[in-house]
Design a protein around this nucleic acid. Structure first.
Length: 765
DNA sequence: GTTTCGACCTAG
DNA sequence: TCAGCTAGGTCGAAAC
């Protein structure tokens, strides 16, 4: 039902994992035959166990509100009092959180005073960019194990079944509670969040319910009070919402470089600019103040490149922001030093995450000053920072290109081929790593000398070879020492984007590895051709073709595949349809000729259940071809075109639908049976407005298809989804010939895993 | 048929 | 008192 675990941290008494399915099952185990009694017993148990922290997966938006609702419905009036404040009722309220970084999301918030809630789903969504955030896929990603999802619609059946089905349900519930805890332990989420709360001085709950601003504000308050500053309650400045110019991205010299490309980076560029020039609210001065205080240019204050904004020097008054930044960066330095010493790969990942978090926190100080919708926007600071940054990257380019020349005794003229914000990629013209690194070191030191402390240009890595596709898009083999490369680094291209299908990601990744690591261009071409051929012959697993996109708005102006699908799913089953902020998974199915993509998107599970054919040519033309051409064109030139034509594209296998009526229905839905006009808005009417006057026979036909479909769909839970053989247990097929018989194996393993869990906690059933 | 623009996601 | 920033590529629907 619940798992309780003591934490190493002496301040946390225990951590409590919640899964609201559990009480339902517990009716058997605990002999509370009345659900109301059971809920009350659960509440009493929580009070007795007195947890400091309650964790779970999606507890904030599902389990807690569900329990409260259920108790209200059953009139268990004493239930909502499991917080630590006696007499304070636990209540659920709706909130809406909207941020550019985290997206817009409708949330429920439950107050359980005195107990921390830590929803691992929210943690995962904030800290990790994943394609899917189901417990299943997150665990597969981080723990290498998964549970089969139990569709909510069969939970009641499992419960009302027999001891065996209830046992199965109980195991699911236990795993549901156990996996979030494993996840939390392995990623050290709780510890990292506690540290973040300590560093920034915000209440723990803010870390999951609020954004970056509150953290900066909080640090600002801390520093301000030390120096007897009072922060104005709210600055109501008009015209603060005008945009300001950001960073420079140097025009790339696109192409494939089979020579070492040296990368030079400013470390923490924006924070170091703010520190170097003492930029802060407390150091900004205007003409009147300069006159009143008799300040002198250069010796007392500096003029920045943004509209001649003026700031006093640190000797006159040290700014609050620069000292906050110093704290954050020294903490990061320590994390990085620890990282160097640590050998355990997982702790390394954690330390790496921590230093990244501190870096993000430091960077968001600049973002905070530029947040026009925020509490203390100050364009003088943010725009000065970016203006300095632009000057610096330009100057760096000039310095490198003017010093490393044949005229100055070097073997070649250096050329900056690309740069973004705080980095420059330099082609020194040498053909080996040792020289490229030596020159990089020399250049970094040379350029650093041209700037104020603590601004520092660092040599970190060499790319060799390097494929520069466009601004913010490149790939290269990453070297930090000349003996062995570190990794294949890709930026911006399909391998790191989540809005492509896995097929594209894998093909591009493999081709890049073949080209950049194995130096086998013809092998890469052959591989790409093979995949294209497989795709057109339907040999690619559907899981490779699933595309996911975030549903980020509630009102869209243009039609899109994932938005239309979410709407259709809501009509089928409002309970399991994606909601605002969720990622919608879809595949593109065959439809009428010329139909738009948004008419051909479909839920992968639905497609699997109904054996709907996939539009493979869409995947070739709209998903694979352009990314492939982009990486092969710089290498092969015009010959790259041959990838997309030739014998391998000729063999096209047309799958014939195996379940006629079903198939027809599924494919026909998006268009009118009468005139083939796509049905856009009222797809549930099945016939378009144009045809409506003469429904008659056509409508009847459609209705019977609908009926047939619904009957068969309802039976799917007792039939195998592929071969229609009868299922003796849940979704396990009885026929070994069935193409999805492996599901049985998976499920068996699942039971074994869960049994091990049971044993560990000495549960008896 | 071409251009514009909204949406998504990423780089830094 | 909800909400870090700008630059930029790419895709596909809508507008022309």
């Amino acid at each position: 039902m619940v798992t309780i675990q003591g934490e190493k941290n002496p301040f946390i008494r225990n951590v409590f994992t919640l899964n609201s399915c559990a009480p339902i099952v517990a009716t058997d185990v605990l002999e509370y035959y009345d659900e109301g009694n059971m809920l009350q017993a659960w509440c009493d148990f929580v009070v007795e166990a007195d947890p400091d922290v309650i964790i779970g997966y999606n507890i904030a938006n599902f389990d807690l509100p569900y329990l409260i609702d259920r108790a209200t419905h059953l009139k268990v009036t004493r239930f909502p009092y499991f917080g630590r404040m006696k007499g304070t009722k636990v209540e659920v309220r709706d909130t809406r959180f909207s941020s550019k970084a985290y997206g817009t999301r409708e949330n429920k918030a439950t107050n359980i005073d005195g107990r921390i809630q830590f929803d691992m789903l929210q943690v995962m969504q904030r800290d990790h960019r994943l394609r899917s955030y189901t417990l299943n896929s997150v665990c597969a990603h981080f723990l290498g194990e998964q549970k089969e999802d139990v569709h909510h619609s069969i939970i009641t059946d499992l419960h009302n079944g027999n001891p065996e089905t209830r046992r199965r349900l109980a195991i699911y519930c236990l795993k549901d509670a156990y996996l979030p805890q494993r996840l939390m332990d392995k990623l050290m989420c709780l510890i990292n969040y506690l540290e973040m709360a300590r560093v920034t001085g915000v209440p723990f709950s803010y870390l999951l319910s609020r954004g970056q601003q509150i953290k900066v504000i909080s640090q600002l308050y801390r520093k301000a009070i030390e120096q007897d500053f009072v922060i104005p309650a709210r600055k109501n400045v008009e015209g603060m919402d005008e945009p300001f110019e950001g960073a420079t991205v140097i025009d790339p010299e696109k192409g494939f470089y089979n020579v070492p490309i040296t990368t030079l980076d400013f470390s923490s560029l924006y924070p170091s600019i703010m520190m170097a020039h003492n930029l802060c609210y407390t150091t900004l001065v205007d003409q009147r103040e300069i006159e009143n205080l008799n300040l002198k240019n250069d010796s007392d204050y500096i003029v920045t490149p943004y509209q001649s904004a003026r700031f006093v020097k640190a000797e006159v008054r040290k700014g609050l922001l620069p000292s906050i930044l110093e704290d954050l960066l020294s903490a990061r330095k320590k994390a990085k030093a620890d990282l160097k010493k640590e050998t355990d790969p997982f702790k390394r990942a954690v330390l790496d995450g921590r230093q990244l978090a501190l870096k993000i926190s430091a960077n968001s100080v600049y973002g905070f000053t530029g947040a026009s919708a925020g509490q203390m926007p100050c364009l003088e600071i943010s725009a000065s920072v970016t203006a300095y940054g632009r000057q610096m990257i330009e100057q760096t380019k000039r310095e490198v290109e003017s010093r490393f020349t044949m005229e100055n005794g070097y073997k070649h003229d250096a050329q900056v081929i690309y740069g973004d914000t705080d980095s420059v990629m330099v082609k020194f013209g040498v053909d080996n790593l040792v020289d490229a690194m030596k020159l990089g070191q020399e250049a970094a030191e040379y350029v650093t000398g041209k700037f104020l402390r603590p601004i520092k240009l660092e040599f970190e890595k060499v790319y060799f070879p390097y494929l520069l596709i466009n601004k913010k898009r490149y790939a290269g083999l990453y070297w930090t020492n000349s003996e062995k490369w570190d990794k294949l680094d890709t930026k911006g291209i399909e391998t790191v984007r989540r809005d492509n299908c896995l097929l594209v990601q894998n093909v591009i990744e493999t081709c890049l590895r073949k080209v950049l690591i194995d130096r086998d261009v013809s092998g890469a071409v052959a591989y790409a051709k093979k995949i294209i051929s497989d795709l057109l012959q339907n040999k690619i697993d559907m899981s490779q073709l699933v595309i996911t996109k975030a549903l980020s708005k509630s009102d869209y102006s243009a039609k899109q595949p994932h938005v239309e699908l979410a709407e259709r799913m809501r009509k089928r089953d409002p309970g399991s349809a994606p909601t605002l902020g969720d990622r919608v998974a879809y595949v593109i199915i065959k439809g009428t000729k010329g139909a738009a993509a948004y008419e051909k998107s479909e839920d992968p599970i639905y497609v699997l259940e109904n054996n709907i054919p996939i539009d493979t040519s869409y995947y070739l033309e709209n998903q694979l071809s352009k990314p492939l051409l982009r990486i092969f064109e710089p290498i092969l030139g015009d010959k790259a075109e041959s990838l997309l034509s030739g014998d391998h594209t000729r063999v096209v296998q047309h799958t014939t639908p195996t379940i006629g009526g079903l198939m027809k229905f599924a494919v026909i839905v998006p268009t009118c049976l009468g005139c083939k006009v796509p049905l856009t808005k009222n797809a549930d009417t099945v016939v378009c407005r144009h045809c409506k006057p003469k429904l008659g026979e056509l409508y009847q036909k459609q209705l019977s298809t609908v009926n047939e479909f619904e009957t068969r769909f309802a039976r799917l839970w007792t039939q195998c989804q592929r071969c229609q053989g009868s299922l003796h247990q849940d979704v396990l097929c009885s026929s070994r010939d069935c193409p999805i018989w492996y599901m049985r194996k998976k499920a068996q393993k699942d039971v074994q895993d869960a049994s091990a869990v049971l044993e560990k906690f000495n549960y008896e059933w």
